[in-house]
Design a protein around this nucleic acid. Structure first.
Lengths: 244, 244
DNA sequence: ACAAAAGTGTTGCTGGTACACCCATGA
DNA sequence: TCATGGGTGTACCAGCAACACTTTTGT
């Protein structure tokens, strides 16, 4: 077969920015890099694109190897390609954002990959341009989640309205009025109220809900403008707080 | 220098989805491919990423070579990486969306690259996965332009309110109420009214405006929700029309 | 005079925000 | 019975959609 002569071939990697929610806080999954360069430093989970697979295939392969989960929400974010971004050899990185329910995860992962969940504002220093990737991913899910109900991908099968509110507040680094938030959430028609309550956080208890998967899929594109001003970071009382 | 052994290197290309506006209609710039495979068929303008440049550098280089313009709005869109997408050799393509003012363009381009501007719904069949790239770019600018004032990048220095409205109507494949549209546009504070009028389209004439570049840059992030429901394609009279 | 496009005025309504209030229950 | 978090009611108001109306001017 003829080839494109005189052009340079280079490495293509994928890196995954993996967000998880445990019912309390939004977290980021990082691993200790197992090989040189930057061995034993914190990094995103990644891998090289193989000859017979697309970047998306590679991302699924890596993600599934790390978490043991299938069918995880995965979305291409951005491709990083500065010539010197990997000091070992020219490598472009195609990044993917993954959203997973930490309660489904669990596992032996911690050992094999030295993986760990970090609070978003407590993550360690990362190698290469990985912090830039994480920052871009945070910004991206803020925009995306304002328009599409993707944050449900982070929730377990059963969850309460306060759980969902905590999740949104972590993502948008703000607080919402609980009355308005719950009304708006219920008005989507995506939630099915359960009979039982979660009493871990209050005496009264909060009703569990399940996601109505059919409506969720059918109306995925009509969730528009759930969050109206995703870029404005302030508390409900009007006090404006800076980025952390 | 040590290398990542046993990994496959592959070609990295960039492709540009170039949108332009001539005061009348939104258009797409395509070229006749100059080399095999698919020689002489319509395609996006592209090129290979060189050893010493990032993908973004490559996109600027290619774009500037094709249009003769500098400082053009350029934004990474998506990376396409199916193993067989280029039948000649494994090549991933990092795509970029460019927005340019056709009136600034002009030039000898048509000859050298056999480039041509096409109306969006009259573009010819494209090679490989280039149509998918164009479709994604159209969708992307609809979302982006609903939140950020990027469509001003397509306008010439002097333009009228009806020009801007035509542009938005082309992008969103809909019509807007002229009263509401002009009020909303003026309320951004981005426009400076000129003394002279454009009388090519009416007896009364429409006042020219210029972009207030300082306010434009300062408030780039606060343009939010200019278009409220970018996905709903319908005419102002309420009749819903399909995608073309 | 009149046609045609530019531009203004007005009104009703949607739905978001703020915040007061009620509810359930364990300690 | 009181403290605490869950949940509901309601009144106000910004801003958007709809559409009637006025302006300008070439033919």
């Amino acid at each position: 077969m003829t080839k494109y002569n005189k052009q340079t071939r280079l490495l293509a990697a994928i890196d995954c920015i993996i967000f998880g929610f445990d019912g309390e806080k939004l977290k980021l999954l990082l691993i200790k890099r197992a090989f040189e360069p930057a061995k034993d430093r914190w990094s995103l989970m990644g891998g090289f694109v193989q000859p017979n697979e697309s970047a998306e295939d590679a991302a699924y392969r890596v993600l599934s190897k790390l978490t043991g989960l299938e069918g995880v929400y995965l979305e291409q974010l951005h491709t990083f390609s500065k010539p010197q971004r990997d000091p070992m050899e020219r490598t472009i990185s195609i990044t993917y954002t993954a959203l997973i329910d930490i309660l489904r995860y669990q596992k032996q992962i911690t050992e094999e990959f030295q993986a760990e969940w970090f609070l978003l504002n407590e993550s360690p220093e990362l190698i290469f341009d990985h912090q830039e990737m994480v920052d871009m991913a945070k910004e991206h899910i803020r925009h995306k989640a304002a328009m599409y109900p993707i944050l449900f991908e982070l929730l377990p099968e059963k969850f309460t309205l306060p759980h969902v509110q905590s999740l949104f507040e972590d993502v948008y680094e703000t607080t919402f009025d609980k009355g308005n938030f719950s009304r708006k959430l219920l008005s989507t028609g995506f939630l099915i109220k359960q009979k039982d309550k979660d009493k871990t956080n209050s005496k009264k208890g909060a009703f569990y809900y399940k996601l109505d998967k059919k409506k969720y899929q059918k109306n995925f594109n009509t969730f528009q403008h759930f969050i109206r001003n995703p870029k404005i970071v302030k508390k409900a009382n009007g006090e404006v707080v800076g980025e952390q």
